[in-house]
Design a protein around this nucleic acid. Structure first.
Lengths: 226, 226
DNA sequence: TAGATCCGAAACTGCTCAGTACCGTATATA
DNA sequence: TATATACGGTACTGAGCAGTTTCGGATCTA
């Protein structure tokens, strides 16, 4: 970023003198229709580039090329690079883990270990790379900051909070345990390991984190036995 | 960053056909001498800008202006923006905590708490901001990555390792404790809190981290009593 | 069929910024 | 004193990139 690609957030309310991007509510529009099935493809392309190059390294041409789309197509749908990125980040929120069908093994350790799945780990790694690429912009863009927060940060912590609340409710851990703080241990350490130490967040690391830090901090002693 | 400001690392060996920046070993050079007392001032200015703007937001003009120096003066001393930044990061290493005079209160908790000083906390916050500003570049620049590692990351972890080894040697914590992993808990969580959550790493947070996570994970139960 | 809008592709515009060149001045050696 | 270099300041150069425009072709409504 050189100046501020997020400036033009002042949306024209509805007058829409634009030839392009009219979005009149339900009026039958003239001419060829915009192919909205391409939106997610473009956003995914943006996320790929973002993860690889970071915000400042990402160019609209890269995104267009990867999505096999024209640059004009992108600008017909998003007013600026900044808005494209915000949308791309926000669209990660969908397809998140369902809170309804989280593991429920009866023990906190069982639940935490059950969360370790190859699929969700790849997913998490990519999200962290994206966050890393947006880090320097984050400080000066509250809207993007919010998007990152609700798409990446909060969901991660919330899952841990749910599992720990359950453990508290069934008496497995003490009511004195600071669940909000403890739920941030694994997101923090996984982020640090990925972005700073540049080491893999693999099953071994996560297990030793659970048994060596989280469970002891929750007041559960033995690593394996119930 | 647009392309790669770090390319020109191929230093001319010693022939130095340059008019500027000759640095002939000990030969009495002609003309006005370079004022090397300005080096640290310029590097400090670079770190300030880096912390505020990040790598891509930082311009050479900003650094020169803040250091009240000419742009040519900077380019006489560093071949590129990339090399300036690497030097600036590396110069943070100096003035680090002395391993010789770390707190030694007799308990791990006492030592960890004694590390919480307003001065070192401001210092740490600035270093984290700098790291955040360099995050997206870090992935594609091993040299800078190494500089960050030895100037910011390692020193932080090393202090914790020393204090924990002492605690182990005096029998306060079990030899089974994974000190290398545990020493990364506070750096990880402080980084996450500062850069991602954007909350202050204050005394209260650090105390609850020590009593709620680190000491329990080290197998020490009571928060206060020995 | 006619007109409007979409599409991908590519040329074009305008700005920012890394890096260079040059100025007048200050300070060093010989 | 003459020469060489450093200094702060400023103008310049060239590249990269956000955003716009244009084009030929496809697809929609009327």
């Amino acid at each position: 970023m050189t100046q501020n690609d997020f400036d033009d957030a002042s949306e024209l309310i509805d007058s829409e003198l634009d030839a392009d991007a009219p979005e009149a509510p339900e009026q039958a529009r003239l001419g060829r229709k915009r192919d909205h099935t391409r939106d997610p493809e473009i956003l995914e392309a943006a996320l790929d580039v973002l993860a690889e190059e970071g915000y400042d390294g990402m160019t609209i041409d890269m995104v267009a090329a990867r999505a096999k789309a024209g640059k004009a197509t992108l600008y017909r749908r998003w007013a600026s690079k900044g808005e494209l990125v915000i949308d791309a980040v926000a669209c990660m929120k969908k397809g998140d883990l369902d809170h309804a069908r989280l593991p429920d093994t009866g023990t906190l350790r069982g639940d935490l270990v059950a969360m370790i799945k190859p699929r969700s780990m790849e997913d998490a790694e990519r999200k962290l790379q994206i966050m890393g690429g947006l880090m320097s912009v984050l400080s000066r863009n509250p809207e993007l900051s919010d998007a990152i927060n609700s798409a990446i940060i909060e969901p991660r912590a919330e899952v841990n909070r749910i599992l720990m609340r359950r453990a508290r409710d069934r008496g497995e851990i003490s009511p004195d345990v600071d669940i909000d703080a403890l739920a941030l241990v694994s997101p923090s350490m996984a982020s640090y390991r990925t972005l700073v130490l540049k080491k893999p967040v693999d099953r071994e690391f996560l297990i030793s984190l659970i048994d060596g830090v989280i469970l002891p901090a929750a007041g559960i002693r033995s690593p394996v036995g119930a």
